[in-house]
């Protein structure tokens, strides 16, 4: 029976992966310029070693090749990694805090990033750092500082009590929001920049960012998945997990630090994309159940699908402008989630 269970899991993951690839490839043809699916596929294929010799791209406009390879593809792949990372981090936070309301921004990482980004936009004294620019660098410094501050406040003789972590995080969230608002009051001309940064966007994607963020997300995912059993047990009850032999404090620390670092990198790369990290783990749990052995991979893939789809809508729904992806994730995600909640209520 166990072998059968494992087979269904592999089967489910295969289906989800297939949907992921379909959505990713499909999203390439959408955008301000409509490019046909055959052309899109040809352009993609011509960049895959081994396949490229069979593909003739002479008939395709040079500009289309540039749009796909330099604009759309990096953006889609970035969205993919970001969605996967946020969703996995959401699973971890909801598990560790045994709280369905927890999301990756709970302990203040996002507001720390927003503060860093705001300072960088208001006082452009910082030089470019790699390909990330001063905004990303400052956002990263901000988010890591806040994360360390929250851990430091909550730490009690080597343990990290959940309630103190949450309360410290929420308090700091409020404090920083007010501080940003204050900064804004004196710099009204930058208000729009800051506001749109916080809504999040993938439009500055490039291959260097993808390489950096992708490696971090993948490493974090592997580390997190190693602890799926401990996450199950801690989610049921931290105290019982301890009597069952889990080194709860150590596991909590590893999971929180790894996922927080990943979220810090994500947020400082593309702003505060809300909702994905809260809702995709939830929605997935409603369908596949709470066991992280299944939940983590399924929710991670679903987070990728959801974010790529949201970004595709964000950049193609208006003819001459694009909408911030953070708006789309909530605008389209909430109704979807509410329907799921409603249906699930009827099932029980």
């Amino acid at each position: 029976m166990k072998a059968k269970q494992d087979a269904t899991l592999v089967y489910k993951i295969m289906i989800m992966l297939f949907i992921l690839i379909a959505v990713t490839v499909g999203s390439i043809m959408f955008g301000a310029v409509q490019i046909s699916i055959t052309d899109s596929l040809k352009i993609l294929g011509s960049h895959i070693p081994g396949v490229n010799q069979f593909i003739n791209t002479d008939a395709i406009k040079e500009s289309h090749i540039i749009i796909i390879m330099n604009l759309r593809l990096p953006r889609i792949i970035l969205a993919l990694f970001v969605g996967m990372g946020l969703s996995a981090a959401g699973c971890v936070y909801q598990g560790v805090f045994s709280n369905p309301m927890a999301d990756p921004y709970l302990i203040g990482i996002s507001s720390g990033a927003a503060l860093g980004a705001t300072i960088a936009m208001l006082f452009p004294i910082f030089n470019k750092f790699l390909a990330f620019g001063s905004v990303s660098t400052m956002a990263f410094i901000g988010s890591i500082s806040v994360m360390l501050l929250v851990f430091f406040i909550a730490k009690n003789k080597g343990s990290l009590p959940k309630t103190t972590l949450i309360l410290a995080g929420i308090a700091i969230n409020y404090f920083i929001s007010s501080f940003i608002a204050l900064l804004m009051m004196f710099n009204k001309e930058k208000l729009e920049n800051v506001y749109f940064w916080t809504l999040g966007s993938f439009k500055d994607a490039n291959w260097l960012k993808i390489g950096f963020l992708g490696v971090i997300v993948l490493v974090a995912l592997v580390i997190i998945y190693k602890y799926y059993m401990e996450l199950n047990m801690i989610m049921v009850s931290e105290e019982q997990a301890f009597t069952l032999g889990v080194s709860t404090e150590k596991v909590k620390k590893i999971l929180l630090v790894v996922s927080s670092l990943m979220v810090a990198v994500i947020v400082s790369t593309c702003g505060i994309i809300g909702f994905v990290g809260l809702i995709t783990p939830h929605a997935t749990r409603l369908v596949v159940g709470p066991n992280h052995k299944v939940l983590l991979p399924m929710s991670t893939i679903f987070g990728g699908i959801f974010t790529v789809a949201a970004d595709t809508i964000a950049r193609s729904i208006l003819p001459n402008a694009e909408i911030s992806v953070g708006i789309i994730t909530a605008l389209f995600g909430v109704p979807f989630f509410l329907i799921l909640l409603y249906k699930n209520k009827n099932l029980r």
């Binding site: 105290e239 009597t243 032999g245 159940g289 709470p290």
Partner: peptide, 22 residues
């Protein structure tokens, strides 16, 4: 060590709720 201890003794806590579909 935690796992060694958990092989020596088990604990049944006061009744509580599990609000998860395990």
């Amino acid at each position: 060590r935690e796992k060694v201890r958990a092989r020596e003794m088990a604990m049944v806590p006061q009744i509580f709720n599990i609000d998860l579909a395990f």
